[in-house]
Design a protein around this nucleic acid. Structure first.
Lengths: 340, 340
DNA sequence: CTGAAAGCGCTTACAG
DNA sequence: CTGAAAGCGCTTACAG
């Protein structure tokens, strides 16, 4: 027990004594300063400074019933999280946006159903005022479960088949796909293939839809042999590209639904002896750090992750304050580099 | 205010009534079940199940003075965090190891000095029982500040110049460097260059020391023109490799202190028309996902991130329980792939 | 082994 | 505008 003794921190009582007012008045100052005379306000603020007082959140939460904290819940299998740089940007952005409101972020990872149950229980017990949910796979019931229990949720990406019951923030996936395919076609490509994301995710579905729409708009024929499905991982992109090359050797461009998969596709193309962009133009999606790590650097669709995290936090705080759920769609943008 | 009403969750009082015992007895069951008769124990447990009771942590913390939560504090500038997959593995591993103890992890990011002050204040106010610190740069005073305030800290990586005051977990950096250089030399390389990490970090310093020691042990001459410093980023690896090629065109191998920098080095070598591994063997460090994303896949030194996170959590919980600080060094291992 | 009671540090009507 | 007081849901000596 030789560990440094932690001194008992000053309480509202110490501040009250120091300022010569009651504890109620100190509390009022702490909670917005309404109904407090200027003189008292100043005395209390000075006392807070002198004593180094910091509110005890446990005591406050006990009475308010709020925890003044927010959960960041990841229900993807871990591997995805490890590999995808987007998660970092999102997580970090949310942490900082919350920090500006002095709200701590609790990180929660639920890889399997038993962890999901444990965490749901923890959350619905009121340990957190709301949840930022990252889990684009449909058929994942946590969002509804939490909302039913009265815990506000904001999802990253549009939840599939949930009829507007849960709030979300998403990039304009479909518009992004339009932009990329338009660019590919505008630069003279005529056999444009696509590697999609998992088709049980909104990103998977909508980027594919945008691809098809833009192809049709360009008067190019639809050809299902030009479409292969991946799971957003690097290796799945490599496998899909290999399959496409086999099925449709004449392809001259490929729109890949994530930069990470595009990295894999690039490897497959190199192995097959196809030059990029001379023989095959490659377009990615995300504008993640991976897009700069490839050779050649990737032409891609930028998702505004910084704005996405900021909007998620804004929406969640609004929901916690009582607002109705809302969906926010943020624009994407084409980033031209060397691969297409 | 049409938001779903959150029902008031059951309290210890409801459980007591349901079980026909006093609240004190319920509390004893909750806290280990000492001094409770088997009959009472069973009645309480049944009542807990029936009511769906979950302890209110705020009330508990208010009286125990513990928060039963832990902070994960990142003091690196954000960019590093985004780019480095190791952070993910570490963060995720710590989250899960803590979850096994039912302890939530609060993510904290302190990019600049003002954020550092805000977060230090938050932590020392007792909102967290201990801190997992990721910040290998020396001259970063947060670890000492926190320990002085009585908050246990466990650092990732050996803190430079802190005389054993703060607990840490690290990989055997020096041994890893030995292993890699030995491998390079054993496969016939004679002009082995090195791209180091930042030399104000333990990883930077120790991997370089290991390189020099092993070169000497192999009877190869020390040549300072063969050493260039990077900052662990991809682009710095590319720049360093370009500089090395200029200074020492005759090099036939390079030991790069991180996989990410190795990725950059590979790009520089390709640009310079050097084949890997035929002309230049490249060895990385980390065995991060980046090592598999390169062409050719990277021979590297595996850091046991899963064990590192588990040990950090173990050590922190021990410190919180009163143990003295300790340093733990975990072994590294050579992973042979195609680049060397 | 068990219950009654005090008290952790706050907030919030309630009087004035 | 301000103070006195109740009470949030727990834990922990203290008696028995």
């Amino acid at each position: 027990m030789s560990r440094t003794e932690r001194r008992r921190p000053p309480t509202i009582h110490d501040v009250a004594r120091e300022a010569g007012v009651s504890r109620g008045t100190v509390s009022r100052v702490l909670n917005g300063g309404h109904n407090v005379s200027p003189a008292a306000l100043e005395a209390v603020n000075a006392a807070i400074r002198r004593t180094g007082y910091v509110v005890n959140r446990h005591a406050r939460s006990l009475i308010t019933g709020r925890s003044d904290s927010v959960g960041f819940l990841l229900t993807e299998p871990q591997e995805r999280f490890f590999e995808d740089p987007n998660f970092n940007v999102l997580l970090s952005g949310c942490t900082q946006a919350l920090a500006a409101h002095d709200i701590p972020l609790l990180l929660m990872i639920a890889g399997d159903e038993s962890e999901r149950r444990r965490i749901t229980r923890y959350i619905t017990a009121g340990h957190v005022d709301g949840v930022l949910l990252v889990s684009s796979h449909s058929g994942n019931p946590v969002a509804e479960r939490l909302e039913e229990a009265g815990v506000p949720v904001v999802a990253c990406g549009e939840p599939l088949g949930q009829g507007g019951r849960v709030a979300y923030v998403a990039a304009d996936e479909r518009g992004g796909a339009h932009r990329m395919v338009r660019h590919l076609v505008a630069t003279g490509r005529r056999r444009v293939a696509m590697i999609t994301g998992p088709l049980d995710t909104p990103g998977g579905v909508q980027r594919l839809a945008g691809y098809r729409e833009e192809l049709a708009a360009s008067g190019l024929p639809a050809d299902e042999s030009l479409v292969a499905e991946g799971d957003y991982s690097r290796s799945s992109g490599e496998a899909a590209m290999t399959a496409l090359l086999e099925r449709a050797p004449g392809l001259d461009a490929v729109f890949v639904a994530s930069d990470l998969m595009a990295q894999g596709a690039l490897a497959a193309l190199e192995r097959a002896g196809r030059r990029v962009p001379e023989d095959v133009a490659v377009g990615g999606f995300d504008d993640s750090p991976a897009a700069l790590a490839t050779l050649p650097p990737l032409t891609t669709i930028r998702q505004p992750w910084d704005r996405i995290s900021a909007e998620m936090v804004r929406l969640l705080l609004a929901r916690i304050a009582g607002d109705e759920p809302a969906g926010v769609i943020l624009p994407t943008e084409l980033v031209r580099r060397e691969s297409a």
